[in-house]
């Protein structure tokens, strides 16, 4: 059976989509007006790493000591093996085991 989308869902999701796309494209289009060298460039170069680090750190800390352990293991595995998938699974395994044992 083919379900229908309610009008309010159509609007709500449509607005969310519009906002998200505008941010994506807006960032790109605005950036070409910025200087390409000097201090500003250095800030923009540091941005990706800083942004990703900010994205994960609070969730790692929220898991407590074991979250830090899981993150450390993930980092070590990715540095040693360069395998992101293996690193992710190792990190998840720590959290899985800890929750299973109720630590």
């Amino acid at each position: 059976m083919f379900p229908a989308i309610e009008p309010q869902v159509l609007i709500a999701v449509g607005l969310a989509a519009g906002v998200t796309y505008s941010l994506r494209l807006g960032g790109l289009l605005l950036a070409s007006r910025f200087p390409r060298s000097g201090r500003f460039r250095r800030g923009m170069d540091a941005l990706p790493g800083a942004l990703l680090f900010s994205l994960v750190l609070p969730s790692i800390v929220a898991e407590g000591v074991w979250g830090l352990m899981a993150a450390a293991l993930t980092a070590i595995v990715v540095l040693r093996t360069r395998n992101t998938l293996a690193a992710m699974l190792c990190g998840m395994l720590v959290i899985f085991a800890v929750r299973k044992m109720g630590l």
Binding site: L52, E63, A71, T74, L89, G91, M92
Partner: peptide, 12 residues
């Protein structure tokens, strides 16, 4: 935790 783990690896 998959999200956190994979982005930790990417951040590294």
């Amino acid at each position: 935790f998959a999200f956190t783990a994979v982005f930790t690896a990417l951040a590294v």
